[in-house]
């Protein structure tokens, strides 16, 4: 069984973790096209190479990011999401708001 190095809990059996999908950049839902939104929701790159993925250590409910090579399955680096997400994210009101 593979070992995943968790930034919080150290090296653990991969069975202790839950996969959370590839890290994706959400397009602005208020302004992107339907096609861009559908691409974001449904499509994955499935790239041969290093991808960044969400993983969660299930027992501690701790989410982190892992850089993994999809060909060799080598885990290159894992890190706390604060490295990428370091400020509060706001959503602006839709440009054209219809009254309820």
């Amino acid at each position: 069984m593979k070992i995943m190095p968790c930034p919080l809990n150290g090296p653990r059996n991969i069975s202790e973790f839950t996969y959370g999908g590839e890290l994706k950049q959400m397009p602005d839902p208020a302004s992107c096209s339907d096609a861009e939104w559908a691409d974001y929701v449904f499509n994955s790159d499935n790239r041969a190479g290093v991808v960044t993925e969400w993983w969660m250590h299930t027992a501690s409910s701790y989410w982190f990011l892992a850089e993994r090579h999809t060909v060799s399955d080598q885990i290159i680096r894992t890190f706390d999401p604060k490295e990428l997400f370091n400020r509060r994210i706001e959503f602006s009101a839709p440009a054209t708001e219809t009254p309820a």
């Binding site: 839950t18 959370g20 969400w54 969660m56 409910s61 989410w63 999401p81 997400f85 370091n86 400020r87 509060r88 994210i89």
Partner: peptide, 15 residues
Amino acid sequence: IYQQMLKWNAQWRLD
């Protein structure tokens, strides 16, 4: 649902 909430807030950084 709990895990998804945590994942979203790992990105949104709400207090």
